[in-house]
Amino acid sequence: MATVAPPVSSATSPQRGVQPLRAGQGNSFLWRKLHSLSGIVPIGAFLVEHIISNFETWNGPLAYAKQVVFLNSLPLVRVLEWAFIFIPLSFHALYGVFIAFRGRSNVNVYPWAGNWMYLSQRITGIIALVYIVQHVWRQRFSGVMLPEHPGAAFAKVQHELSNPWMLAIYVIAMIATTWHFSYGIWLFAAKWGITPGNRARKRFGYVCAVLGIALCLMGLASIYAVVYKYPNAPENVLPETPAALVQPATATSAVSLTNSRSAAPRTTQSQPRSTPQS
């Protein structure tokens, strides 16, 4: 009879609970860092650009139209759009949802500032996702095609925002995305080891807050401009024919503007410059 029991290894049964680190294995590090990076460039960069562009609404429908024309005049604009906006954004958004659903928020138990911000980053991310899907669909891929009819941009948005629900959604989304972005920059700096020290993080926190508030106010100002500052904007401030309005250098876009459904309504030939407020 074996009286001396051999030592059993404790690893015979699968370990319950959180598993140990899989040292050096897997690719999640790469994906996670790409997600992080994509939030800053290109998505964050796009957001800044977008908010600045949209801020042209402050200067009226024509100025905004020019901005749209300018953007559409960039070389390979469709490629840029997909490579630097749609694809990274989809990746960031979808991987972000994946990340968000793997966290177990516990602010109810530990209501500390950092923990709230952690939760807020997930909530604002989801809000941004929902908003962007509808926004891009309605503004970019349906209704009047703005690349072809840049002059209709202001009116398109104005129509959208004439619905008070839509207006509320835009305001919320504006706050959520700029919040998400500015805290995202702070997070990026903290997590990439750019601001390891407590004081550095705190200081950078102020910088991000200022940036976030500025972006948010610009965005809200644009919304204000669209809804209240220039009521009843013309359907299209850039009738296709007078290519003279377009800078000579952007002839390509002028071409692209003219070859489309040029039966666009030319009805309200109002003069943006003469809008009293400006």
């Binding site: 598993q19 140990p20 680190l21 899989r22 040292a23 050096g24 294995q25 897997g26 999640s28 590090f29 996670r32 860092k33 990340i99 966290g103 516990n106 530990y110 500390w112 500032a113 950092g114 923990n115 911000m117 952690y118 980053q121 997070l187 903290a190 997590k191």
Partner: peptide
């Protein structure tokens, strides 16, 4: 290198509860 594995340092979402608690 070990910390770049699955479950590694990248999973931190900087909630900062750790340092509080």
């Amino acid at each position: 290198r070990a910390l770049a594995g699955d479950g590694g340092v990248q999973e931190c979402g900087f909630a900062q509860n750790c340092v509080e608690a």
